Computed example of a mutant assay.
Amino acid sequence: MNLVLTLTFLIMSLAMVVVFIRLVKGPSLPDRVVALELIASIMVGMIGVHAIYTQSSSFIDVAVVMALTAFLAAIGFARFVEKGGQRDD
């Protein structure tokens, strides 16, 4: 079980690095926002795996709050683009 959790953390960390490169490189604002949303989703997954590892249910609450915050950020970005905000694509 410990090997599986370690491997899961390693794969999620690698995914985080790849997504961070996409966040920095761009090329457009929507690409960067999608990368930021994906980072938030990976973080929620990592918190969930950590909750399984430590057998602590309080981390699940943290993951839910983070997921809701990321969802609200996505809604805010969609409104921003819908109203004709800054675009460089």
Score class of each variant (00 low, 15 high):
Leu3Lys: 13
Leu3Gln: 14
Val4Phe: 15
Val4Gly: 12
Val4Asp: 15
Val4Thr: 15
Thr6Gly: 11
Thr6Val: 14
Thr8Glu: 10
Thr8Leu: 13
Phe9His: 14
Phe9Pro: 11
Phe9Glu: 13
Leu10Phe: 14
Met12Gln: 08
Ser13Pro: 07
Ser13Met: 13
Ser13Glu: 09
Ser13Gln: 07
Leu14Val: 14
Leu14Ile: 13
Ala15Pro: 08
Ala15Met: 14
Ala15Glu: 12
Ala15Lys: 07
Val18Gln: 13
Val18Trp: 14
Val18Phe: 15
Val18Leu: 15
Val18Arg: 13
Val19Ala: 06
Val19Tyr: 05
Val19Ser: 05
Phe20Asp: 00
Phe20Val: 11
Ile21Pro: 00
Ile21Thr: 02
Arg22Ile: 08
Arg22Cys: 09
Val24Tyr: 08
Lys25Cys: 10
Lys25Thr: 14
Lys25Tyr: 09
Gly26Pro: 06
Gly26Met: 07
Gly26Phe: 08
Pro27Leu: 01
Ser28Gln: 01
Ser28Thr: 13
Ser28His: 03
Leu29Ile: 12
Leu29Tyr: 03
Pro30Asn: 01
Asp31Leu: 01
Asp31Val: 05
Val34Thr: 07
Val34Arg: 01
Ala35Gly: 05
Ala35Val: 06
Ala35Glu: 02
Leu36Lys: 06
Glu37Leu: 13
Glu37Gly: 13
Leu38Val: 14
Ile39Thr: 06
Ile39Asn: 01
Ala40Gly: 06
Ser41His: 03
Ile42Val: 13
Ile42Cys: 04
Val44His: 03
Val44Arg: 02
Val44Thr: 10
Gly45Pro: 08
Met46Lys: 09
Met46Gly: 11
Met46Leu: 12
Met46Thr: 06
Ile47Thr: 06
Ile47Met: 04
Val49Gly: 09
Val49Pro: 09
Val49Ala: 15
Val49Asn: 09
His50Gln: 09
His50Tyr: 12
His50Leu: 10
Ala51Pro: 10
Ala51Met: 09
Ile52Thr: 12
Ile52Leu: 14
Tyr53Pro: 05
Tyr53Cys: 07
Thr54Asp: 11
Thr54Phe: 11
Thr54Tyr: 11
Gln55Asp: 12
Gln55Met: 08
Gln55Leu: 08
Ser56Leu: 04
Ser56Phe: 02
Ser58Cys: 01
Ser58Met: 10
Ser58Thr: 10
Ile60Lys: 03
Asp61Ile: 10
Asp61Tyr: 13
Asp61Pro: 05
Asp61His: 12
Asp61Gln: 12
Val62Arg: 06
Val62Trp: 02
Val62Gly: 01
Val62Lys: 07
Ala63Met: 04
Val64Lys: 00
Val64Asp: 00
